[in-house]
Amino acid sequence: MIKVYAPASIANVKVGFDILGTAISPIDQTTYLGDCITIKKSDTFELYSSGRFVDDLPQVREQNIVFQCWQHFCKKIDDTIPMALTLEKNMPIRSGLGSSACSIVAALVAMNAYCSYPLDNNSLLRLMGEMEGRISGEIHFDNVAPCFLGGMQLILDANEIISQSLPIFDKWLWIIAYPGIAISTVEARKLLPDWYNRKDCINHSRYIAGFIHACHSKQSHLAIKLMKDTIAEPYRKKLIPHLFQIYNAVIKIGALICGISGSGPTLFAICDKSDIAINVAQWFKDYYLYNDTGFIKICRIDIKGAQILKE
């Protein structure tokens, strides 16, 4: 039996639209924030589902991304391998926390291990990006790369290098607030313009380049100052009512920055003190939860990425 866990992730990280993402895990270490895949031997292909958000999965097996992962994995290795898979769906769909990436990464890592590692990490990551593209409409790696490899990943996709790790700030606490509603990644992408003005392009280049420099030079305050979004946030703010009022409220409490996780509706805030993080988390609980399916977690960057729990 193979069991694999793949963590949640924050794409874009405000300053790096489609090229920056970080894996996250709760600081209490008592619960996983991600999906699990279990594979057992079988004479045929079987797919089962469980978990808190199992009811949100497609009812038709062929529409399940895990089934599609199996199809494409078998095509990639040129062999049809029977197996019994169970998806433990612990992540809400269309939450902005890399839910599809969790399922894709866990599934493909588990399949690769079950079949004695026919694919290297680069081939596996490229397949993950392709599977993610089937959901979002475009191939992108800013969720699957950190989910698979851990840490904060900068997407390069050049010279056979898909992504590389950035240095992280160990003191940063990441509060993630999922309100319990869904926003479609495809619909959120449709809000973005086809063309940007020169000033926005220059500013975006300056912010992301400066942020990367700040990470490597360990200038946490500079990194925070440069976490500005000129690409997506100005157009997606209409999806989250009172977005800038929310930002102002948590920053007034003491958060260093606040932003949209992926396409939303999950928001993230960064703090460098635990008491402030607790207060920010409480504010989100009081004012940002829409229903009982929402949740607030205080996290750190997950440096491990996908983990094989049983083999």
Rank of each mutant, 00 (worst) to 15 (best):
V4C: 08
A8T: 05
N12K: 04
V15Y: 01
G16S: 05
G16L: 01
F17A: 09
A23L: 11
S25F: 04
P26G: 02
D28K: 13
Q29P: 00
T30R: 14
T31S: 12
Y32Q: 12
L33C: 03
C36H: 11
I37T: 04
G51N: 04
V54E: 15
D56F: 11
L57I: 07
R61G: 03
F67Q: 02
Q68T: 00
C69G: 05
K75Y: 00
D78Q: 13
D79Y: 07
A84G: 08
E88Y: 11
M91A: 07
M91G: 03
M111Q: 12
N112L: 15
Y114V: 14
Y117N: 15
N122V: 13
N122K: 14
M128W: 04
G129N: 03
M131K: 06
E132Y: 00
E132V: 11
G137S: 03
H140L: 08
G150M: 05
I168R: 10
I175H: 06
I176N: 10
A177M: 14
A177F: 12
G180M: 14
A182P: 04
E187C: 06
A188E: 13
P193Q: 12
Y196T: 08
C201P: 00
A209M: 10
F211M: 06
F211H: 07
A214S: 01
L222M: 05
A223S: 01
K225I: 05
K228D: 06
K228Q: 10
D229R: 07
A232E: 07
I246E: 02
N248D: 15
A255E: 03
L256S: 15
C258N: 13
G259V: 07
G262T: 11
T266F: 13
T266R: 10
L267I: 15
I270M: 08
I278Y: 04
N279D: 04
N279A: 03
A281C: 05
Q282D: 06
Q282N: 01
W283V: 03
Y288G: 06
C299I: 07
R300K: 09
D302W: 01
D302M: 01
K310S: 13
